[in-house]
Simulated assay, not measured.
Amino acid sequence: MEYIALPPGLVTTSMAARACDVAPATIRDWVRRGILTRCGGTPKRPIYRLADVTKARTAAKPCRPGQRGAAAA
């Protein structure tokens, strides 16, 4: 079930994923990692600010040593 109508500037997980050209799981991962925060909705149907989503897309992603993309020590 999707929302019937959202206020301007707010998007669902699937809409955010389409806006960033990533999978919905990536949006959920950004939330889990603290790169993106929810601005409302329900636990199963969160909503996000579109401006926050676009900032998260270009934000530096934290990574652990030994992970792909991590700088060699």
Rank of each mutant, 00 (worst) to 15 (best):
A23Q: 13
R38Q: 14
A60H: 07
K61E: 15
R57E: 10
D52H: 06
G66I: 02
T26C: 11
A70Q: 04
V31G: 06
M15Y: 04
A5F: 06
L36C: 07
G41T: 03
V53P: 12
P8F: 12
T13R: 06
S14V: 12
A72P: 14
M15F: 07
R68L: 09
A73Q: 13
A16G: 15
V53D: 04
G9M: 00
A72S: 14
A73M: 10
A23M: 09
P62T: 10
C39L: 02
R49V: 03
A72I: 13
V11W: 00
S14D: 15
V22D: 06
C63G: 11
Y3F: 09
P65V: 00
A5N: 08
R45T: 08
L6C: 06
T13N: 09
A56V: 06
G69P: 02
I4C: 14
G9R: 02
V22L: 05
I47F: 05
T13W: 00
T37H: 07
A17P: 01
D52L: 01
L6P: 03
R28D: 12
T13V: 12
D21T: 11
A70I: 01
C39E: 11
R57I: 06
V53I: 12
V22W: 04
W30S: 05
M15P: 00
T26D: 12
M1K: 03
V22K: 09
A51N: 11
T42S: 14
K61C: 13
R33G: 14
R28G: 12
V11C: 15
L6F: 02
T26N: 10
I35A: 07
G34E: 02
R68V: 13
L6K: 03
A5Q: 08
A17G: 03
P43I: 11
G41D: 06
G41V: 03
G69D: 01
P8T: 14
T12F: 00
A70D: 05
R57W: 05
R32P: 05
T42Q: 08
C20P: 04
I35V: 15
R45E: 13
E2A: 08
T26S: 14
P8A: 15
T58P: 15
Q67W: 07
T12R: 04
R68D: 11
Y3D: 06
R49Q: 09
W30P: 04
R18E: 14
I4Q: 13
A25S: 15
A5S: 11
P46C: 03
A16H: 02
P62N: 13
A17V: 03
A25K: 10
K61N: 14
D52M: 01
M1T: 11
G34I: 01
A16E: 02
Y3T: 07
P7G: 15
V22G: 09
D52W: 01
A25I: 08
P46F: 00
P43D: 10
L36S: 07
E2D: 13
M15A: 14
V11I: 10
P24G: 07
V11G: 03
A71M: 08
